[in-house]
């Protein structure tokens, strides 16, 4: 078993995103080293690895969220439907619309439930109230939240439970019709039932969206994802179907990590 080259299962033929020789630096510190990874369309890809392994950095490179960090530099090619999202003339705001993000801690705006979901549409220039109302409902239904909030759309989003707030953030993301959704530990602060709802939602969303999720929970990765990528010290060690990764991974370091021997 060689440990030098990453063990990567055959690349999906339906890659929504392709990353080639991706390196990410914070100043002189290299956080991601030469990562080649394809993200299959309409599937869930889980990124796992110990703290500081670079999985969140890699995730944030997928929608140019790292642009907001001055000392951060991204090298290599990150393609969305074959086009480089870091290419000249590409609008990062449009990239982030197509590649949405849900964070570890739910971050609803101190506004009503309705206004939270409508926010992206309005700043995108949508003025038609009927269109906005329709998209808000669609998005809340898509995030499996509609039935719980339809009678209090004008109440403050901050009054929702933690799990509901996280689903609201997913609805806010869905409202602008993204193609890819990045999730950075979306359920780590939630109780088991709220976590189960988010996980169930992720399984439903994959019918229409491409999802990349960072998680510290091996069981969560096993439950929700179709493929799993293991990162260690900034390198992609192994990427394969989730079932294979959790039953017979090719690399010793993957085995040691997923079975709780380090990390």
């Amino acid at each position: 078993m060689t440990e030098s080259k990453p063990a990567v299962a055959e690349a999906p033929t339906n890659a929504k995103m392709e990353t080639r020789n991706v390196n990410v630096f914070y100043g002189s510190n290299q956080a991601i080293k030469d990562v080649d990874l394809d993200i299959a369309d309409r599937s869930v890809t889980a990124l796992i690895g110990p703290s500081g392994c670079g999985k969140s950095t890699y995730l944030r490179a997928l929608n140019r969220m790292n642009d907001t960090i001055d000392i951060c530099r991204v090298e290599g090619r990150i393609l969305l439907d074959g086009e480089d999202i870091y290419g000249r003339g590409v609008d990062p705001v449009e990239v982030r619309r197509r590649v949405g993000m849900v964070f570890q801690k739910s971050n609803p705006f101190p506004k009503s439930v309705f206004d939270n979901v409508a926010f992206g549409l309005r700043i995108g220039g949508e003025k038609d109230k009927d269109v906005i109302a329709q998209r808000v409902e669609e998005s809340l239904r898509g995030a499996a939240l509609w039935d719980e909030v339809k009678d209090r759309l004008q109440s403050s989003a901050l009054g929702l439970s933690g799990g509901q707030q996280q689903r609201l953030c997913i609805a806010r993301c869905l409202a602008v019709w993204p193609e890819v959704i990045l999730m950075d530990e979306p359920a780590s602060a939630l109780d088991p039932i709220a976590t189960a709802k988010i996980e169930e939602l992720i399984r439903e969303l994959r019918e229409q969206y491409t999802i990349v999720i960072v998680t510290h929970s091996m069981q969560q990765a096993a439950r929700v994802s179709d493929s799993t990528a293991f990162f260690y010290m900034g390198e992609l060690i192994e990427h394969d179907e989730t079932e294979t990764m959790f039953t017979r991974p090719a690399k010793k370091r993957t085995e040691e990590y997923i079975s709780g021997r380090f990390g």
Partner: peptide
């Protein structure tokens, strides 16, 4: 323990 990999096997 919800073992995985070799521990599961």
């Amino acid at each position: 323990r919800q073992p995985v990999g070799r521990d599961l096997r």
